[in-house]
Design a protein around this nucleic acid. Sequence first.
DNA 1: TCTGGGGTCCTAGGACCC
DNA 2: TCTGGGGTCCTAGGACCC
Length: 392
Amino acid sequence: MSKVIVHIDLNAFFARCEEIKDPSLENKPVAIGHDGRGGIVSTCSYKAREYGVSSAMPMFKAKQLCPNLIIKPVDFHFYQALSDKFISFIRKYTKLIEIASIDECFADFTDTIKGVKDVPAFFKQIQYGLYKETKLKCSIGVASTKFLAKMGSDYKKPMGLTIIRKSDISRILYPLSIDKMFGIGKKTAPRLKELGIQTIGDLAERLNNDDPILVAEFGKFYSVIKDWVNGKGSDEVSIEPWDPKSIGNSTTLKEDTNNRELIASTFRMLAKEVSERAVRENKLGPTVQIVVKESDFKVHNKSFTLENPTNNADIIFDVAMKLYEKNFSNLTIRLLGVTLQNLIDQKDVAIQMSLFDYQMHEEESATKLLINELNRKMKKKIFMRASEVEKK
DNA sequence: TCTGGGGTCCTAGGACCC
DNA sequence: TCTGGGGTCCTAGGACCC
């Protein structure tokens, strides 16, 4: 028995939120995003799209295309509150909900739908119910797998409803351009086109013939994607709450720089933000990663793994700064970022041990602790090398 | 006037262990 | 003095998604 998996996507969500906040914006071209250096369109209203404005477009370009564009900064807290209302509304129908992002979810309606005569009407009713209650517009995809449901919700917007049965796959899915496919992005789509694959149907045919070029191209993803286009694939809706594996913060600087003071103060700010969020989430991480983007947009990462996981702002800052000074101090930089990785729950850390450690070093500064740790690691490495040489 | 910021997952090479 | 292979961890980079 196949399941009834639903994907619900809130249409032009950020823009819709702003229209709900200020109804005078309705039917006007609205874009959400930062209007300044490096600013891009995060989301825009359907009216703005008529001018050619689209997501991820530089704001200056959006303004060129649509001179009367209304630009609003991102109001994340307001959007989150509306997103919560959206999830609460769906929860009236099923508890099996997987929150995929702020504006979309998967839901398992297998039991909910039992005995329902007119399935399309049932989902239309949910769609209009959500609109009545929250003023949010959504598109709904209904299918037997998450992939097909996702493709369904994307098929018709806004306020679309697309039901994809197994027998509909070749009619609905296969004619779509390959770049409409979930999982195929800006890099892979052009490569596939070079291989003569224009549509999802073309891809399905080549996958089903086990084309060795595609086996090499997709690696581990091959069997997953082959299942997807054949109506198989995951139908498991995970109700687990979001559990972050990394917490990061990055910023594009006012102007490109190699000024050490400015870079240090930026790292301090980023480290503080990361630390505060990790503390709020009760998370500790052993690995600190920095990201730098050069003025020519070349991106570099460096990371260092501590012996003890941390969420201390000073330690994060010190590692970040050392990584920067060791690797990138001669670069002209556009963007800086700090990420704490491999997060674990505070409660899972050996509490006794960390308490002991803390008392032992209470009077020492975080910096000292860090330097000690770096030294220990360094000595260990040197010792290991020496013993290797000895062996030989 | 150029091209964000938040994430996840995968790959591939090197170090190291057994 | 010839030269294994399985496994884990760390690191850097890259693709993708919203």
